[in-house]
Amino acid sequence: MAAILDFVIAFLIVLGGAFALIGSWGLARLPALMSRLHGPTKATTLGVGGCLIASMLYFPSHGMSWSAHELLITLFLFITAPISANMIAKACIHGRHVYGDAVAKYEVPLPRPPHPDAEWATFGSTEAAKPE
């Protein structure tokens, strides 16, 4: 039983490390900023998640006390990852005209919102973004 648990823990640790590496590899090699966002927000988060689940299993199974902080870190990372990705995406679409040629090569042009009076909230007034 203990051997199976050890195997699961080792598998999760290696999986976590591999995903962290893949996410960072994506960050280094993908061509455009918006594509690069995909690697860290998903792969790296699951990488850390794997390490945290492994440690949640490891400490009780090796006779040490269970720590709730792992669970807290996992929750916190999964809640904050979309928010920081969203903020960086906003900074990116806001900066399209500022950075110009450095990003234009691989970026797909931004679509207009289908409604004629509407604009994306980064460019327009945020007051109007509230639903009725």
Binding site: G23, L33, A91, C92, A102
Partner: peptide, 12 residues
């Protein structure tokens, strides 16, 4: 090459 890239790198 751009500032958002560097923020993303720091976050990761």
């Amino acid at each position: 090459p751009t500032a958002p890239d560097r923020i993303l790198a720091l976050d990761t």
